[in-house]
Simulated scan of single mutants.
Amino acid sequence: MQDKTYSISDLAAEFGVTTRTIRFYEEKGLVHPQREGQKRLYTPADRVRIKLILRGKRIGMSLQESVEVIDLYDPEHNNEEQLHSLISTVTEKRQRLLQQKKDIDEMLAGLDEVQALCEQSLKDSHGK
């Protein structure tokens, strides 16, 4: 009995990406589909790799960061190294995003102040 395989269009539809995206991952050596003529057949392991890469992308990880974490997978040793690496990456991303949020909040407050001053100036000039 052969393990379940997935076509490129199956995976593209499941994950809401283009077949070009999946071919890109293949070109980068991140997945290794079997070939039947022109047809690509992806294994369950390829499917999981694509899923994890896309999950990493959703949380702001670069492709390289995602691959580094995925490649640390070691089921014989409880994945401890992989989990520590992921925690470190997530913590770093969170800190960067919180700083960006703080910067945006400060810019918005500055814009509010400038707008209020302009509106007050207009109001004052119309009152004279």
Rank of each mutant, 00 (worst) to 15 (best):
E113A: 11
S88W: 03
H126Q: 13
S85P: 03
D74N: 13
D10W: 09
F24E: 10
K101Q: 15
R40Y: 05
S7Q: 08
A116V: 06
K93F: 01
T21A: 15
S62K: 00
K128L: 10
E76I: 09
Q120T: 07
D112Y: 09
R58I: 04
Q64M: 07
M61N: 02
Q2Y: 09
N79R: 01
G127E: 12
Q2C: 05
D112W: 04
I104L: 15
V31T: 02
D105Y: 00
E92N: 14
L11P: 07
L52T: 04
S62R: 00
V17P: 09
Y42D: 03
Q95L: 10
L72T: 00
F24S: 11
H84G: 05
E92S: 15
T5W: 13
A12K: 07
I70R: 09
Q115A: 11
G110D: 00
K102N: 15
I70G: 12
E106Q: 07
Q100W: 02
I87S: 09
T21Q: 09
T21P: 03
V48G: 03
K39T: 14
K28C: 05
K39L: 13
Y6I: 07
Q38C: 09
D74E: 12
G29T: 08
R55P: 02
K28N: 01
V90Y: 04
I104Q: 03
G56W: 01
D112S: 13
D71N: 15
S125P: 01
D105E: 10
E113W: 07
I22T: 06
E81I: 08
D10P: 07
L30W: 10
Q2S: 13
L108F: 07
T43G: 04
Q120M: 10
E106N: 04
S9A: 14
R55H: 11
N79T: 08
Q82I: 08
Q34W: 11
Q95T: 13
E113D: 13
